[in-house]
Amino acid sequence: MAEPLTPSPPLTPQFCFTPGALRDFLRLSRTAVDDTVTQHLNALVTPAKEGFDPSSTSRPVSWPLTHQIDAASCRTFKDGVLFPAWNGRSQALSYCALVATGPDPDDPEAALREAENERNRERVVNERLDPYSGRFFPREPRTEQLVSLVRMEQSVENIVRSRTWDIVNQRCGGSLGTWEQALATWRKANNPP
């Protein structure tokens, strides 16, 4: 099996709590596989099988959109590139969701947040003198920020995978089912219990 285009990073809580690292991994993986799926599939088509037609260079040809890719090449692409990338992103998002729901004893802003909350309890609110004195925006714990980030990235992931799977279905021919079914089948075959 081929190596995925973007290897999964080591999954640690620090990776999850560094939003830039998680976002960069997801962005690079999506760029390498999903955003360029048409180019990957075009590379699987061999239009020269029928022989070279010299007149083909004098007019534009839309061969990638009309030629179907053979089943073996499609299966190789899905099993060696597409599904490993999706699986790596799923593992990262699942791990970070697990980290976000657990306790965070190492939160560097916990003391600062507690001090702000204490000051807020001692604050005198007189909205008649200052209509804005009742406003208080507490800092969100980083676990809550991570929950929001993971939820948003999972939504993006579903959209990206649906779009990619539509293109793969169109180019590889036939109905290959949903991407969820195909990924579950691949996982079952590649990760025996």
Rank of each mutant, 00 (worst) to 15 (best):
1 M>H: 05
1 M>L: 12
1 M>T: 13
2 A>I: 14
7 P>V: 07
9 P>R: 03
10 P>K: 08
11 L>R: 01
13 P>F: 08
16 C>H: 00
18 T>A: 10
18 T>S: 12
18 T>Q: 09
19 P>S: 09
19 P>Q: 10
20 G>P: 00
22 L>S: 03
26 L>E: 12
28 L>K: 15
34 D>N: 04
35 D>H: 11
36 T>V: 11
36 T>M: 11
38 T>E: 14
42 N>I: 09
45 V>D: 13
48 A>G: 13
51 G>K: 08
53 D>A: 12
53 D>V: 13
54 P>F: 10
55 S>F: 01
56 S>H: 03
58 S>A: 07
59 R>I: 14
60 P>T: 05
61 V>D: 14
62 S>V: 11
62 S>Y: 04
63 W>D: 06
64 P>W: 08
64 P>S: 07
65 L>T: 08
65 L>D: 15
70 D>R: 03
75 R>Y: 05
78 K>D: 14
81 V>L: 15
82 L>R: 03
82 L>G: 03
82 L>T: 00
84 P>Y: 06
84 P>T: 13
90 S>A: 15
93 L>A: 02
93 L>C: 05
96 C>I: 06
98 L>N: 09
102 G>C: 10
102 G>H: 00
103 P>Q: 14
108 P>K: 04
108 P>F: 04
109 E>W: 00
110 A>V: 09
111 A>P: 02
111 A>M: 06
112 L>W: 00
113 R>V: 01
125 V>L: 05
125 V>I: 15
129 L>Y: 01
131 P>D: 13
131 P>Y: 10
131 P>L: 13
132 Y>K: 06
134 G>A: 08
135 R>K: 03
135 R>I: 07
136 F>L: 03
136 F>W: 06
141 P>L: 01
144 E>N: 09
144 E>R: 10
149 L>I: 08
154 Q>S: 12
162 S>I: 04
166 D>Q: 15
167 I>Q: 04
167 I>E: 11
168 V>F: 09
175 S>Q: 10
179 W>C: 01
180 E>D: 13
184 A>E: 14
184 A>P: 02
187 R>L: 15
191 N>Y: 09
192 P>A: 06
